[in-house]
Every structure is written in C-alpha cells, then in structure tokens.
Amino acid sequence: MTIKVFAPASIGNVSVGFDLLGMAVQPVNGELLGDVVAIEGCDGSNQLAMEGPFVDKLPNDPKDNIVFTCIEIFQQALSEKGQEFDWVKLTLEKRMPVGSGLGSSACSIVAALVALNQYYQKPFSEAQLLAMMGQMEAQISGSLHYDNVAPCFLGGLQLMVNDKQIISREIPSFSQCYFVMAYSGINVSTKAAREVLPEQYDKATAIAFGQNLATFIDACYRQDLPQAMSHLKDVLAEPYRSGLLPGFDVCRQGVAELGALASGISGSGPTMFVVTDDKENAEQIQTFLQENYLQSPAGFVYICQTDVHGARLVC
C-alpha cells in the first residue's frame, strides 16, 4: 500500500516574529502549494525517486537529498527505540521552488517524516516528530529554527516557545484575511539571507521588536485586525534583506496604494506577502504583482488563506 502526504507552504517570520512566528498558507483556488511525498515498502535498500515541476533544482544524486537523510534519521530513531523496520521507497513530488521563502525545505522534510511515521504505525509523538523536523531543517539553513516546519506540520499560525517539550503553540489567526503570495522566480538561500543580518542590534531596535511582537499577539487573541496589521513590521531582517529582492520596495509602495493592510518578506525571500481582508482587493493586488514583481517565468502569484490543517494524507 502507498501512503501519500502533502505538506503546505508557509510564511516564516510573518514579518513581526523573526524565527518565532510562522503561518501555513493554502491557495483559495484549491491548488496544492507545497510538496507531496509517497511511501511504500521495497526490497534491498532504501530508495528515493524525485519528480515534479521543480525537481531540476534538486541534487542529482538522491542520497544527497534531505528527504533521503530523513529516512536515515527516522530509521536510526527506530533502532534506538529497539523497533525493527523494513526498507522503504519514497517518491518526492517537488512542487515548491527551492530558495523561495515559502518553506521549500520544510515542505520536503515535514512530508517525508509524516509519511514515515504513518508507514511505521506512528511510533513517534507530534513533539518528537517536530524535534526531528527542526534537526533536519538546521542542516539546510545552518541554524535551528521552527518557524517553517511547525506551521507546515501543524497548520495555522504558530508561535515558537522556549520549551523543548512543547516547541510551538498555535495562535488565533484572521480567517477573513487573504494573503497574496508573490514568488519572483529568483532564488535566495536561507543561509545567505541570514549572513546579511548584523551580529548585534541596538537597544531601541530590540525594544521595538518586542513591542511589535507582543502587540501583534495580543491583537490576534482579541481578533483586533487593525491593531495586528499596524504592528506587522519587521525591524530585524527586512531592512537588510529588502535589497536582495529586486522590485520589493517599489511593489510594497504600490500595494499600499492599492489598499493592502500590510506586506512583508516571506521567510528569507524572495517571496513577498501582502495582506488584505477583501477578495476583490486581493485580485487587484495579484494582478499588480504579476505585472511588477515577477522576475522570471518560474515566478507565480497565489491568493491564499491560512491553512489550518498542516501536513495531511492525500489520495
């Protein structure tokens, strides 16, 4: 029997919560924006097949792919539990562009580990799986952070907490909002985008970051959309990363003039996200970004809402 798992795209940081906030998103047109991993038993040794529209951006040798490493890490964890296992074949359908700022590596990692957990009869809890996902993500980005893997796995708007037993808590999101996601078509590696950030910040910046994040979280719990949007500001990363994204500053001004409630960089970029609570306005913003932000034929613009489901089985 073949098991298939889909893992959705996500907005890392959500502007206001650098490394602390992430939100899963899904296109309103029903398309799957994320990766799909299928798993089945096989003989001889573990195998990985790769396909999909962005497969050409992956390493040629399957054993160099993070999904193959997921198999090895998972089976090692099974061995440490004293549980026997058989060999498996995973097929990665790479539907997410690499280096897009949409949690591409997180999608592959989450889909693979959830599929493995399903295949081996759920030997690990959600918290244990999430810890594995963070471990795998750190191998890609060079630092441990959960702002993509947590929402990709659990769905919704997730706040990372300083507790290894919990890791992430879901925060109320705004179901009435549309998130216009514009991937320009260029690649920005998470590692490179982190290297442009300063090693230290001044006290005023630290205070502004804390105040914006606290006020945003408060607004989410009270469902105060105007307050939330007025504090959806990135004082830590965006001032340094916006220069890496051609057209970002011009398009940010343009969508503001169209009535957007807020906008920002998704993860480390180059994808930008724009927030509105009006479907017609979202369509206007989508058209504007298609005409002004895309840098190559690989780019796209989706109108999304919060994905409340996270990783899930698909037919």
Rank of each mutant, 00 (worst) to 15 (best):
V180L: 05
Q211F: 12
V235F: 05
D234S: 04
T190P: 01
A192H: 03
Y178L: 02
V180Y: 00
L236Q: 06
Q211R: 15
E195T: 08
D202G: 08
R222Y: 09
N212C: 07
S189G: 06
G185Q: 04
A193P: 03
V180E: 04
Q223S: 13
M181F: 00
P226L: 11
D202M: 00
F209H: 15
N212G: 07
Y178Q: 04
V188A: 00
A219R: 09
Q176N: 12
A192Y: 12
A204E: 12
E199K: 13
T215G: 05
T205M: 07
S189T: 14
S175Y: 13
A192L: 10
A228T: 04
I207V: 11
A193N: 10
F174E: 00
Y178C: 01
A208E: 15
N212W: 07
A228K: 09
T205S: 10
A182Q: 07
A206S: 13
F174Q: 01
G185V: 06
D224A: 09
I186D: 03
Y221E: 12
Q200H: 14
I186K: 13
S175G: 04
K233G: 01
F174W: 01
F216N: 07
F179Q: 04
T205I: 12
A228C: 06
L213A: 11
A192V: 12
G185T: 13
T190G: 09
A204T: 14
L236C: 09
C177L: 14
R194T: 00
G185Y: 08
V235W: 10
S189N: 05
Y183L: 00
Y201T: 09
A208Q: 15
F174D: 01
F209S: 15
A208K: 15
M181G: 00
Q223C: 05
V188D: 03
L213W: 05
Y178F: 14
Q200L: 15
K191C: 02
S230P: 03
L197H: 10
L236M: 13
K191W: 01
Q227P: 05
F209W: 09
L197W: 04
Y201I: 08
S175V: 10
A228F: 06
Q227M: 14
L225P: 00
C177M: 10
Q211N: 15
I186M: 06
E199Q: 15
L213F: 11
M181E: 01
L213Y: 07
V188I: 15
A214N: 14
R222A: 10
Y183M: 00
Q200M: 12
T215C: 13
I217D: 04
A228Y: 11
I207A: 07
L197Q: 05
K191I: 09
T190N: 03
V188Y: 00
I186L: 07
L225H: 03
K203F: 11
A206H: 08
M181I: 14
S175C: 05
Y221A: 14
V235Q: 08
Q176T: 07
A219K: 12
F174A: 04
R194A: 06
A208R: 14
F216G: 03
E195A: 09
A193H: 03
A192D: 11
N212Q: 11
V180M: 02
A219Y: 01
Q227V: 12
E199P: 00
S189W: 05
A192E: 15
E199Y: 00
R194M: 03
D234N: 13
